[in-house]
């Protein structure tokens, strides 16, 4: 991989060499100062093209009475925002989004963490187990939707057939609010748990062994090792997993949409999420692109707030334990 040979060090400096050395020093300073911007520039250049324009466009749309097909109408200021927050459906969507998000993300991250810890052990046939965990990620969404529709069908589904055998009455997966959220959370976790497991595993593998060795000398129990060494060392990755799960979870769209044949979130909007509501406003019967954009921006702000809270929490939790482990090491 490394193809560039190390440069020859200059041993003695003639005046000419001295100038070269100065130039090198200057270049080096520039290098330190400006090359970071060079490295991050591809992202920002492309983002400006394909990300920023849609963002600005959408915010412009959200301030107008804007029909998807009819196009721009009057400038209405923040009226679209005021209208949508007065709609009961918006709040119902928000409730469902948070409920599905909590029901899916919390177990997902916890399971992923434990699975990763298991896979981190010295196993036979490591590749097999690791790849196996990631298998659901390659299943095409159309197949995932179909399979889970069959499993959670109210009258003919496998879930209710199995529950009946253990004496639990049929559950209204498509009528009860909580049941529908649990079913959707299952669908989400099926596809994404393995993915997060591997991310955490990659980070666990990078934890220096001597930290564990010190703990073994200390006679720390396995659980304690996990809690005071593994978790704190994973902090950046945990932050990553939690932030991306938060963003993905609050934008959840595909799974609840696939959950029944109409894709509208149930006859009583039992599982209609904010993004589904946004889509219905913009592309459904109303075709109100302005209001849909307003919902998108409100959701964007909500995600930022929740993301910031989660970031703070994660830092705090793993941070405290980190200092604990330092104390432990001293002892």
């Amino acid at each position: 991989m490394a193809v560039i040979a190390p440069e020859q060090e200059q041993q003695e400096l003639s005046p000419k060499d001295q100038r070269r050395f100065d130039r090198r020093q200057r270049l080096s300073r520039w290098d330190v100062k400006y090359s970071p911007y060079l490295y991050i520039s591809p992202f920002f250049i492309l983002f400006a093209l394909v990300g920023l324009f849609p963002l600005v466009y959408t915010s412009w749309v959200s301030l107008h009475d804007w029909n998807l097909i009819g196009g721009k109408g009057d400038f209405v200021g923040f009226e679209n925002y005021a209208t949508v927050v007065q709609q009961p459906l918006f709040w119902r969507g928000l409730r469902n989004t948070f409920s599905i998000f909590l029901l899916s993300s919390v177990p997902q991250v916890i399971i992923a963490l434990f699975l990763a810890a298991m896979l981190d052990a010295n196993l036979r046939a490591k590749t097999f187990w690791r790849m196996g965990v990631l298998l659901p990620y390659v299943v095409m969404p159309v197949a995932v939707g179909m399979i889970f529709n069959k499993v959670f069908a109210d009258q003919s589904g496998m879930a209710n057939a199995l529950l009946e055998k253990v004496g639990i009455g049929p559950i209204g997966w498509h009528s009860d609010v909580l049941a529908s959220h649990i079913a959707i959370a299952t669908m989400v976790d099926f596809r994404w748990t393995g993915y997060n497991t591997l991310i955490l595993l990659a980070a666990m593998q990078a934890i220096p062994q001597d930290l564990y060795e010190a703990a073994v000398v200390d006679g720390a129990a396995r659980w304690r090792q996990f809690r005071s060494i593994t978790i704190p060392s994973l902090r950046p990755t945990l932050i990553f997993v939690i932030i991306t799960s938060t963003i993905g979870g609050l934008q959840i769209f595909d799974e609840p949409r696939m959950f029944d044949q109409t894709g509208q979130g149930g006859s009583d909007r039992q599982w209609m999420t904010v993004t589904m509501y946004l889509y219905e406003l913009g592309w459904g019967a109303q075709k109100s692109f302005g209001r849909a954009s307003a919902v998108a921006w409100i959701l964007f702000l909500i995600i930022l707030v929740i993301g910031a809270i989660n970031f703070w929490l994660t830092r705090r939790i793993s941070g405290t334990e980190s200092s604990e482990s330092k104390k432990g090491a001293k002892r």
Binding site: A153, S156, G157, H174, D260, Q261, S267
Partner: peptide, 14 residues
């Protein structure tokens, strides 16, 4: 049955 739902489809066989 909700039309086009999984249960609706299954009901044709039952």
């Amino acid at each position: 049955l909700g039309q086009w739902s999984e249960d609706w489809t299954a009901a044709f066989q039952k």
